[in-house]
């Protein structure tokens, strides 16, 4: 599935004293099978942007196209679109409501109008994919740990079998172990199912380790868009807008600046390790 944002501007509460421009003239193409990291600090327009991709918000100006069709059209089926562009919000507490985990995960596919059998099949499949133990399936979602709730929330969206999966800060509030598990889960899902994944985050490390494309937002606009190496090469520009580069990149940049022959554009700890060790061996 291909998503295109064409000069999208979004203003909250237009024509009132509270009017606030959250997106300014954003144009993007989101292709198939990529792992995109969307970064930017609070208030940069990330959340507004992702809500345009599944039609929860309509652009004030500009258009969003899904497979060539304008999703703001009156006759466009936005509900079906939301099954194809799955959006997992930051707080699982905002969506868990059923008496047990399994029923909660069934909510999405049921809304797509699938049969009971197909719904349950998909819910079961999704719960397995997110790595939850079968004992959890009939527990109340409110009794689970933070990490488990997050998995149930992701399963609730996965059960709709989306082609594009958008995750808003999926690791916020989780301990390092838990957040690593969630991220590697997402990465493996992306590979196995050939989904497009958009990961909203402000952790540079997370994004650098998994994404093959990084989109940087600032003040409602897209300021950078490229591979991790391309984006993190502009470390100074990133710092200017209040973002940092991954620690590994920073270390190598400083070593490079000090005259040590390492590549300054590494993005992950593994790469940095190789570079630095290689430097000693050379």
């Amino acid at each position: 599935m291909k998503l295109i944002l064409d000069h999208v501007t979004h203003i909250y509460d237009p024509h009132t004293p509270h009017a606030r421009t959250a997106l300014r003239d954003v144009s993007l193409q989101i292709g198939e099978g990529s792992f995109i990291g969307l970064i930017g600090h609070t208030g940069s327009g990330k959340s507004t942007l992702i809500q345009h991709l599944n039609g929860l918000l309509k652009p004030t100006e500009g258009s969003v196209y899904a497979d060539g069709k304008d999703i703001a059209d009156a006759e466009y089926n936005r509900r079906a679109l939301r099954g194809r562009v799955g959006l997992v919000f930051q707080y699982p507490e905002h969506q868990l409501f059923e008496a047990d985990v399994f029923k909660d995960v069934c909510f999405g596919p049921k809304n797509l109008g699938l049969t009971q059998k197909e719904t349950e099949l998909r819910a079961y499949e999704a719960l397995q994919q997110v790595g939850l133990e079968p004992e959890v399936y009939d527990q109340s979602p409110f009794d689970l740990s933070g990490g488990q709730k997050r998995r149930v929330a992701i399963a609730g969206v996965l059960a709709m079998r989306p082609e594009v999966l958008i995750l808003d800060e999926p690791t916020a509030g989780l301990d390092p172990g838990g957040s690593r598990e969630i991220l590697s889960l997402i990465a493996s899902l992306q590979k196995e199912r050939g989904m497009t994944v958009i990961l909203v985050s402000h952790s540079m490390e997370d994004v650098a380790a998994y994404a093959d494309r990084i989109i940087v937002m600032n003040g409602g606009g897209v300021t950078m868009d490229g591979t991790p190496a391309e984006v993190f090469a502009q470390a100074d520009a990133l710092k200017e807008i209040g973002l940092s580069v991954p620690a590994a990149t920073e270390v190598c940049r400083r070593l490079y600046a000090a005259g040590i022959p390492v590549r300054p554009d590494v993005t992950t700890a593994e790469e940095a390790c190789e570079e630095i060790c290689g430097c000693f061996l050379r």
């Binding site: 929860l56 959006l87 997992v88 919000f89 969506q95 909510f107 999405g108 809304n111 797509l112």
Partner: peptide, 16 residues
């Protein structure tokens, strides 16, 4: 504000 967020989260799962 919370109501709006929850509505969005459920609409993202196809709720109407």
């Amino acid at each position: 504000e919370e109501t709006e967020k929850i509505m969005n989260a459920q609409m993202a799962r196809g709720a109407a």
